[in-house]
């Protein structure tokens, strides 16, 4: 059963048009002209229970707008949304009990209070009895390793600690779906990795469905099995991570060190990325040339060392973004 069901979702924004300069400003005051921008244009997808899904796209693609419609903050113009069989537009308050949101760029914690007081506050907001909140806090404290700073005011926490608390705060009411909007923004690699592990553990433990947006490709790579890419308000790809990685571009990178120089220019299906004499880096399009053919061209006897790798996911994704241009 799908937990989120979106069909033909559309949202338009009215944006005031302004001509340049002083005259333009005066004109736009007297007779404002508006332009309609299709922020989200015919988006459909569904998410299964317990899935970890990456919802990505370039800036201005309509990601945040979609999330805001899913959580009932913004109202869609047309199309239908069902989140846990609720219509976010009509049942926003009811839906709020079922979902949690973490926005990496905003803080929802009270900065003068300790994480513990904050969690108690969120417990009360979601009508959870005192004793249950205590138990839940203890449980999440273990899971997210908050023990050393649960009694330190939030303003004195490091960003990594704060984000952990933000996530815990949005889990107090045991949401079925967690929306994570760039949760690792501004964090160092170690902390990022830590947060990812915690998110993964949480998904396993509570079967929480996770809806993640991020510009950090390794977030997506490490967490999500499925990815939806959206660009200019349209879904351009909805596929499993595996497919995206191994089949979408059908390209491999060969990085080799040879005994003698090899001239591969002009070969079909081979793109030379770097050629520094005996050090060669090429991209092979496996649709046009198999890896074995490429190896033959290089001559196995000539190879000292070789590394065959996939095109980095980052590149695949930026390629997809650019295709939409």
């Amino acid at each position: 059963m799908s937990i989120i069901e979106v069909k033909k979702l559309k949202k338009e924004f009215k944006v005031k048009l302004k001509e340049k300069g002083f005259k333009g400003t005066i004109k736009s005051i007297i007779k404002p002209k508006y332009k309609k921008i299709k922020a989200v244009n015919d988006v459909s997808f569904s998410v299964e229970k317990g899935e970890m899904i990456a919802f990505i796209g370039p800036n201005g693609a309509g990601k945040s707008t979609t999330i805001k419609m899913l959580t009932g903050i913004l109202h869609n113009d047309s199309g239908s949304i069902k989140v846990m069989d609720l219509d976010p537009k009509k049942d926003r308050k009811q839906l709020a009990y079922e979902i949690g949101c973490v926005f990496g760029q905003k803080e929802q914690l009270w900065t003068h209070l300790t994480p513990y007081d904050n969690f108690k506050f969120f417990g009360a907001v979601y009508d959870i009895p005192e004793t249950v909140v205590e138990k839940k806090i203890n449980e999440l404290k273990e899971l997210f390793e908050l023990d050393s700073f649960i009694d330190t005011p939030v303003r004195n926490l490091s960003l990594g600690q704060r984000i952990r608390c933000e996530i815990v705060a949005s889990l107090i009411h045991e949401p079925k779906i967690l929306f994570l909007d760039e949760p690792t923004i501004g964090l160092d690699p170690v902390v990022k990795d830590n947060i990812r592990k915690l998110i993964k553990r949480m998904n396993k433990e509570y079967k929480t469905t996770i809806f993640l947006t991020s510009h950090d490709v390794s977030d997506i790579e490490k967490l999500c099995k499925r990815v939806i890419i959206i660009n200019k308000g349209k879904v351009v790809l909805d596929d499993s991570m595996e497919n995206l990685k191994y089949h979408y571009l059908n390209k491999k990178i060969l990085d080799c060190k040879c005994k003698e120089e090899v001239n591969l220019s002009g070969e079909e299906g081979i793109n030379i990325i770097k050629n520094k004499g005996v050090n060669l880096k090429i991209e092979v399009d496996t649709n046009k040339k198999s890896i074995s053919d490429a190896l033959k061209l290089l001559n196995p006897d000539n190879i000292i060392d070789i590394n065959i790798s996939n095109v980095p996911l980052e590149e695949i994704i930026s390629n997809i973004y650019n295709d939409g241009e």
């Binding site: 805001k68 959580t71 009932g72 903050i73 926003r92 308050k93 009811q94 709020a96 009990y97 979902i99 949101c101 926005f103 905003k106 929802q108 907001v125 979601y126 009508d127």
Partner: peptide
């Protein structure tokens, strides 16, 4: 738009 963080709470 900060108001949004109050809109998705059940109060």
């Amino acid at each position: 738009g900060n108001i949004t963080y109050n809109l998705n709470k059940p109060y």
